[in-house]
Write a protein that binds this DNA or RNA. Structure first.
Length: 476
RNA sequence: GGCCAUAUCGUCUAGUCCGGUCCAGGACGCCGCCCUCUCACGGCGGAAACUGGGGUUCGAAUCCCCAUAUGGCUACCA
């Protein structure tokens, strides 16, 4: 039975990179018929917050990759908990004792200041700093301020990474690292090993920034007599300048993208393609399809730049493919958020506006000023009513003519306004552009907008006529 | 500095394991054309890459070596 895990630290919002790591863990577990566990790594009490934890869980669930087991917004699931490290402090101590007993770990009283001094000394003489004190034989008992160090043996340690292939480390280049600050404050590299064992994790899929932690964890894992784990290290997501993604590069959290009007399905599709592909040209996948096709073998070995244009394009496709009810639901949310009073509209008007807009936007957040004219009479400069090399008089004449035509179309056939009006224009001496440009501007107040027919449909006959009148005034 | 990893269009990538079908394919972006009252959509077309140098071979994007570049790690954070 395959078991994977995502183990975020609640020290900030759900980062886009964490979301992708979670996704790959989810996909691998599901593809193998396994279980996907979520553990909260909050051993760093100073930086961990409940708000962050909630944001992370909610973000993951929004993406559709909430945990099978472990911490969820609904509480904890599963029998191998607790799944928050802050609730597990009791279980760690006994393993600390095991390591001290076996001589694999020892108390080190060396002060932080002393360590800093040694480090600077090594730096100055351009020597790598490898701390292995005389007292690594375990001559000291615990005392206030002591840290527990792991006694690193000299050997070449290697593992077969599921993504990167064989990776070797010479542990003689490694110092005796700290696994706990006193009895009650075990550190990351230690607790992770305990938790992964106790939660029966079989595959550890994480960012490649953890590669150098792996030999430490393998050492501890072995000293404790635990089962060997499988590792897979994913390439990082990079900013456009190829550096690590950070706040200064703009939106970096899933929450940011949700607020901007991206769809979870689009995010998942995009994130999956950032570092993985099936081996062909296919690019559109639902979560379920990704589960079917996913394989660690096809995960890329090098970092991937986060390409916002590509995300936008994928998101636009997903928006257009949404059923109308969904478009209305999400569109309404953003419209309201952007300050529009939806009570002014009938359900049918709302549906029309949103479905018109959904063909034109890349993110829901874009529904804003562009739709203002649907809600209120537009303000605009009369000059833009005049098309190409028409004169103002011609534009005015055109508007007067079209006003009459619209007036004569009765309410019952108003829904066929497009075909009716085109027919009438064709039979007249007017050209399409000569009629439709001034008309469209009269209705929208904009040089760029949806077609006049769509707008007329939404506005209704009376408002259409009123706006044409207003335009005629501007040209008088 | 040390250790580890990576290297195909601007970006995401196919092709690399099992060398010839690759004067390198797709997507995003960009440019042009078509559709068209405008914008957007859609359709068609275009420019655009094997990091460099050696080697192996009849033949290398693919195998080997070196160089270079880039990224990660180098905590009493995770």
């Amino acid at each position: 039975m395959i078991r994977t895990r995502i183990a975020p630290s609640p020290t900030g919002k759900l980062h886009i990179g964490t979301a992708r790591t979670a996704l790959f863990n989810y996909l691998y577990a599901k593809n193998q018929g396994g279980t996907y566990v979520l553990r909260i790594e909050d051993t760093d009490k100073n930086r961990s917050t409940k708000e962050s934890e909630h944001d992370i869980l909610a973000g993951l669930e929004w993406l559709g990759i909430g945990a099978d087991e472990g911490v969820t917004t609904e509480g904890e699931l599963g029998d191998l908990g607790p799944y928050r490290q802050s609730d597990r402090t009791g279980t760690y101590r006994q393993y600390l004792e095991v390591l001290i007993e076996s001589g694999d770990a020892y108390w080190c009283p060396t002060s932080g200041e002393e360590l800093d001094r040694l480090k600077k000394e090594a730096d100055a003489s351009k020597q790598p700093f490898i701390y292995r004190p005389e007292h690594r034989d375990g001559r000291y008992e615990y005392q206030e301020g002591s840290v527990l160090r792991f006694k690193v043996p000299d050997e070449v340690i290697w593992f077969e990474d599921k993504i990167k292939g064989k990776i070797e480390f010479d542990t003689s280049l490694m110092g005796d690292f700290v696994i706990a600050k006193g009895w009650d404050n075990p550190l990351y590299n230690f607790v992770v090993v305990i938790d992964d064992e106790l939660m029966q994790i079989t595959h550890i899929i994480r960012g490649e920034d953890h590669i150098s932690n792996t030999p430490k964890q393998i050492l501890i894992n072995r000293a404790l007599g635990f089962k060997r784990k499988n590792f897979g290290h994913m390439p990082l997501i990079l900013a456009p300048d190829k550096s690590k993604m950070s706040k200064r590069h703009g939106a970096t959290s899933v929450e940011d993208y949700r607020a901007l009007g991206y769809l979870p399905e689009a995010m998942v599709n995009f994130l999956a393609l950032l570092g993985w592909n099936e081996g062909n040209d296919r690019e559109d996948y639902t979560l379920e399809e990704l589960v079917q096709k996913f394989s660690l073998k096809r995960v890329q070995k090098s970092g991937a730049v986060f390409n916002k244009e590509k995300l936008d394009s994928i998101n636009a496709k997903y928006i257009r493919a949404l059923p109308i009810a969904e478009k209305v639901r999400i569109g309404s949310e953003f419209l309201t958020h952007n300050g529009f009073d939806l009570d002014k509209l009938s359900q049918s008007q709302l549906e029309q506006i949103i479905s018109i807009e959904c063909d034109r936007i890349k993110t829901f957040g874009e529904i804003g000023d562009d739709v203002k004219f649907f809600f209120e009479t537009p303000e605009y400069d009369g000059e833009i009513l005049v098309w190409k090399n028409m004169t103002a008089e011609e534009a005015k004449a055109s508007l007067e003519w079209v006003k009459e035509q619209v007036y004569n179309i009765d309410e019952d056939s108003y829904t066929e306004i497009e075909s009716r009006l085109k027919e009438i224009i064709n039979e007249s001496d007017w050209g399409m552009g000569q009629v439709l440009w001034p008309l469209r501007v009269a209705l929208s107040g904009q040089e760029r907008s949806p077609s006049p027919f769509e707008i007329m449909q939404v506005l209704g006959k009376d408002e259409t006529l009123a706006r044409i009148d207003q335009a005629i005034q501007k040209l008088s």
